[in-house]
């Protein structure tokens, strides 16, 4: 009777012990680097002056199709490279509201494609790339071939994601604002 209870208790606590190991791994593995990196980038932005970064953001947020590569390719790539996951999404604050979901989609989709070359962007989720990479190394094939192609397809995919998400955002926005007066 007590054995069963003890086994159940062991099983129960083991769920949280595994969680605690994961917590430990993430805090030790990511947080120190994140804090130092964040401090450096915060200081850099403060010394450059937020108004200049703002200006680039405003530039990225302009109307017109010509600015979409800035908004959904250049800006998210710079954001992810410099600020890394999850800080990169704060750069959405420089854009008008309607573009924020598209920017988020572009930026968040870029947190894995550079892992083969710049693992600092998202070390906590390295095995999205590292898992498949392990098979390639096992076969003795050149990993850079795959890493470069993953990065290049990343550029293409995040641009498309930004555009498609912006289109959905506009449609849903229009529906919301149509319904709002009726509901009020």
């Amino acid at each position: 009777m007590f054995d069963v209870l003890a086994d159940a208790a062991t099983e129960f606590i083991s769920w949280f012990q595994r969680g605690a190991e994961t917590f430990n791994g993430l805090v030790v593995g990511i947080v120190p680097l994140l804090i130092v990196l964040l401090t450096a980038v915060n200081a850099l932005i403060a010394l450059i002056g937020p108004e200049r970064v703002n200006k680039f953001g405003e530039w990225a947020g302009r109307e017109g199709f010509a600015y979409t590569p800035i908004r959904y390719l250049v800006w998210p790539v710079i954001s992810v490279f410099v600020l890394t996951n999850p800080m990169a999404y704060t750069n959405g604050s420089f854009l008008p509201e309607i573009y924020k979901p598209g920017f988020y989609d572009s930026a968040v989709s870029f947190v894995h494609p550079p892992l083969g070359i710049f693992p600092h962007v998202n070390p906590g989720e390295f095995f999205v790339w590292g898992g498949i990479l392990a098979g390639i190394t096992e076969l003795g094939l050149n990993e850079s071939d795959l890493a470069v192609r993953y990065l290049i397809t990343g550029f293409i995919v995040i641009y498309i994601r930004g555009l498609v998400t912006e289109w959905f955002t506009r449609r849903l926005w229009a529906t919301q604002h149509e319904n709002a007066p009726a509901a009020a």
């Binding site: 999404y89 750069n91 959405g92 924020k100 979901p101 959905f168 955002t169 849903l172």
Partner: peptide
């Protein structure tokens, strides 16, 4: 999505629209 948009200073209305926009978009992309 809601946290990411909040990090980007998005209004609650934007989050309301943005969450389904990203989810629907992913079905295609």
């Amino acid at each position: 999505i809601p946290v990411g948009l909040a990090l980007g200073d998005a209004e609650p209305e934007t989050v309301e629209v943005g969450v389904p926009a990203v989810l629907f978009s992913r079905m295609i992309t």
